[in-house]
Design a protein around this nucleic acid. Structure first.
Lengths: 191, 191
DNA sequence: GCAATTAATCTAGCGATGCTAGAATAGGGC
DNA sequence: GCCCTATTCTAGCATCGCTAGATTAATTGC
């Protein structure tokens, strides 16, 4: 069985190599530059090898996105876990979300912008994605009415800020100010 | 000169035909289906004719987007103009924005989602786009601190709701509830 | 250790895409 | 009616995602 194991391990390594290379190429030149030919050349294999791991380019991007969900969830949960009960938890979670988007713009794009087959807000939703959303609900504090809708609106605002900034539709400067406003508006002093 | 005039008029008509056809095809099957070949076939001309009007597909989409800015600005200004001073102005403007996105999803996509050469928040920004943004500032009411940043955050929230809904990342139901929350949070009772 | 079988990988190609150079065709001016 | 100019089309390029079939490598059976 050890031969089979070795093969499986090598396949798994190549799977990871494809994902890492796709992400790096996207980070360097954008998703449009991630063509199956370039990706194959970068991993020193021919095109069809990609299709033995993934059904197509979209599935590669979905896999990169799934990794992103895990990282995002970890970052957000780190903030809610450390929550000392002070009122800064909401701000910290929002800041962590914006930081993630800033540090991994193309992964963010695959997760939340580009067409994806990943199901949101359904039973098939990946656990990491649910966890990330749950962090918003937690950060908004307990005992609030319509907390799911509230979290959706907060997330919408953050997402809007991210994509409008990334596409240069709102200025990069003002970042901090906008976060301040958002936290003030969604803080726990109910209006 | 009458012959030249006729030619110019025919060219202008064909320009409009291209834009209308591109929009209709996008509305029917999405922007991916708007290929230069299909578009040319639909207007009963060959491909290169498109390039005598536009530099490329991106420019056609930008032209459709520009028309969209005008329509959006008109819709939003209709709400701020009718403002009787009551507190519903903000809600009406937000609702008008969401309605526009709902009624013209692909135009909205060209305006605010897809990569575009149209400059936002700069001196080259089209007047209609400025007017639309100004409507948000107005709707938020006078004498408010950081009114531009505030408007940017409001717009971000609305945009986030639109794109996350259109890409099925937040559920279609809850629409009304989310609007209620947003208006409550951004209402003029400063916190 | 060698042949036969199976698995892995590659070459080559299909039907599209956006875009364009050069040929063909129309139209207006004299 | 002829010529010239402007318009439009035909045909093709490079590239895209993806795949069938040939080819090579690895594994198994003897």
């Amino acid at each position: 069985m050890t031969i089979v194991e070795r093969k499986e391990r090598q396949r798994a390594e190549r799977y990871e190599l494809i994902l890492a290379t796709a992400r790096e190429l996207a980070e360097a030149e954008g998703w449009d530059a991630v063509t199956t030919r370039r990706l194959a050349a970068l991993i020193d294999y021919s095109q069809p090898v990609l299709y033995s791991h993934f059904k197509g380019k979209a599935e590669i991007m979905a896999a990169v996105a799934t990794r992103g969900f895990k990282e995002l969830a970890a970052r957000l949960e780190a903030e809610t876990a450390n929550a000392t009960g002070d009122t800064d938890t909401l701000r910290n979670v929002c800041a962590a979300y914006l930081d993630f988007a800033r540090s991994r713009p193309v992964v963010y794009e695959a997760m939340f912008v580009l067409p994806t087959k990943i199901k949101f807000a359904s039973e098939e939703t990946p656990p990491a994605l649910r966890a990330a959303f749950a962090a918003f609900v937690t950060a908004l504090g307990p005992h609030r009415q319509e907390s799911v809708f509230l979290a959706e609106v907060l997330w919408s605002a953050l997402h809007g800020m991210v994509v409008l900034m990334q596409s240069e539709r709102i200025p990069a400067i003002g970042d901090e100010d906008r976060l301040n406003i958002l936290v003030r508006k969604f803080g726990n002093d109910d209006v």
